[in-house]
Simulated assay, not measured.
Amino acid sequence: MRNVDRALSEIEYEALANLRYRIRKFRQFSGKAAEKLGLTRQQQHQALLAIKGLGVGGRMSLSGLAEKLLLSPAEAAELAASLQEAGHVTIDAKQKRRPAVMLTAQAEELLRRLTPAHLYEIREMAPELMQALRMLQDHRQMEMAAWMQ
Rank of each mutant, 00 (worst) to 15 (best):
P73G: 14
P73D: 13
A74Q: 14
A74S: 15
E75T: 05
E75M: 06
A76N: 05
A77G: 15
E78I: 00
E78R: 07
L79P: 03
L79M: 08
A80S: 12
S82K: 11
S82I: 02
L83I: 03
Q84T: 07
Q84G: 01
E85C: 02
E85L: 01
A86I: 02
A86R: 03
A86C: 04
G87M: 00
G87D: 07
G87Y: 02
G87H: 07
H88A: 02
H88Q: 09
H88D: 02
H88S: 03
V89G: 00
V89T: 12
T90A: 09
I91H: 07
I91V: 15
I91D: 03
I91F: 01
D92F: 10
Q95C: 00
Q95M: 02
K96V: 14
K96F: 08
R97K: 13
R97N: 09
R98S: 12
P99D: 12
P99L: 07
P99W: 08
P99I: 09
A100S: 08
V101N: 10
M102S: 09
M102L: 12
M102T: 01
L103S: 08
L103H: 03
T104Q: 07
T104G: 09
A105C: 06
A105I: 01
A105T: 08
Q106H: 04
Q106N: 05
Q106F: 00
Q106D: 11
Q106P: 02
A107H: 02
E109D: 11
E109F: 00
L110R: 02
L110Q: 04
L110A: 06
L110E: 01
L111C: 04
L111F: 06
R112L: 14
R112M: 03
R113A: 15
L114I: 14
L114A: 10
T115G: 03
P116T: 08
A117V: 07
H118Q: 15
L119R: 15
L119W: 13
Y120K: 13
E121K: 15
E121C: 05
E121L: 11
